[in-house]
Simulated scan of single mutants.
Amino acid sequence: MRANNEGRPGHLPGAIAPLDVVRSLFFIPWFEEHLSQRISAFYFLGWTLMYEMFFYCVFAVTLTLPRSTQLKAVVLCLAALVAIGLLFDFRNGMSFAYTSPLLLEFIAGCVIGRLYEAKLIPPRSLAATLIFLASAVIVWSAWHTPESLLTRAIIWGLPAALVVAAALSFEPDAQKSPSRAGLLLGDASYSIYLSHIIFFLMFNLVAKRAGIVHGFSEIALFYGTIGTAIALVGGLIVYSTIERPMSQLLAGLSKPKAKMDTPLQRSSSS
């Protein structure tokens, strides 16, 4: 997907700039005022990968600390960066991205992980209710889109964290009776994640050309049902035709080749 360079000096709208490709390959975002997350990458979803790699770097550094202080270090580091971002109005891609309130969602993930280790995840009797309520808030937010990234981290991030935490309550049952469909979707999750926007855009184009979507309620309904189904099927196709064969090929190349004995070695061992 081409980067949107509208309004950027020296770039034609929709043009592919070599510098943008290089920066994306090195996980360096750039600032885009018109986007809700304010940062972008050569491939649109690439901005989320930049956050992911940044978190890995922070997490890797904290692994050098004593186990008892690792979670505290991650939380303090990310919280401090968010506080700096709230105090200063950054307009540079890296400084804005890595002080964004979206980092709070990584803190939530770390806390959920620690709660799971401590067996403090909500009981199954409460989990279904939490998932329903959190999902209802996310659906409600479709008609009340958060205006700021801090509000977004709260209105979208907190319910999403509750869904994850509550879903972990069913993990023991899932391990006892694993679902083949669920395991397949889990294996294909990265392909689904990277490709879903393409299938959504294709679905949106067809829906508009066919004139079957008019009001916002219809758009939300179609995207939430048919669009999601198409994105899942498309992601599974990408996984089976690209990711899995590529992973198998790389795994085969990385395996050490069996060392063959020479005739001299075979005769000496006999």
Score class of each variant (00 low, 15 high):
I107G: 03
I84M: 05
G157Q: 01
P245E: 09
S169N: 06
W30H: 12
Y190E: 01
S217I: 00
I226K: 01
L25G: 00
H144P: 14
K208E: 14
K259G: 02
P263S: 06
A118M: 15
L221P: 00
K257D: 04
A136L: 15
G7F: 04
I155V: 15
G234A: 09
L87G: 14
L205S: 09
K255W: 00
A142M: 12
P146S: 05
V233H: 06
L19M: 01
G109Q: 07
V82F: 13
Y56Q: 08
S269T: 09
W140C: 09
F27T: 02
S36M: 06
I212R: 08
S40K: 05
F132S: 12
I192M: 15
A134T: 04
G186A: 07
N5Y: 03
I212A: 06
Y51R: 06
M260W: 04
N92K: 10
P245T: 06
V61R: 07
S195Q: 09
S240E: 10
T129H: 14
K176A: 08
I107H: 02
S135I: 04
G85W: 08
A181L: 15
F44S: 02
L65A: 15
G93L: 04
L133G: 08
T64M: 14
A108W: 10
M50S: 07
L185E: 11
K259P: 01
L149P: 06
S247E: 13
G182C: 10
L183A: 14
S148G: 04
K72L: 13
A161Q: 08
Y43S: 10
L63Y: 01
L250C: 03
M94L: 14
R244N: 04
P178W: 07
P172T: 00
N204A: 15
A167F: 00
K208I: 05
V213E: 05
F31I: 07
R8T: 04
I107D: 02
H144I: 11
V238Q: 02
Y190D: 02
C57P: 00
L25W: 04
I212L: 11
A167H: 00
V58W: 11
E243S: 12
I219R: 13
I39G: 06
A161H: 08
M1R: 07
P18G: 03
A17E: 10
P29Y: 09
A3P: 07
R8H: 03
L205Y: 09
R152T: 11
Y193E: 07
L45Y: 10
L78A: 06
K257M: 05
C110H: 12
E6G: 01
P66E: 00
C110V: 14
F88W: 13
F199S: 04
R180F: 02
N5I: 07
W156K: 06
F27M: 11
A161L: 12
H34T: 09
I212E: 10
I212T: 13
T48Y: 05
E32M: 09
A128H: 06
E147C: 08
F88V: 15
F44V: 08
G157A: 03
F44C: 01
V163L: 05
H11L: 10
G182I: 10
I107A: 06
I131Q: 07
R266V: 14
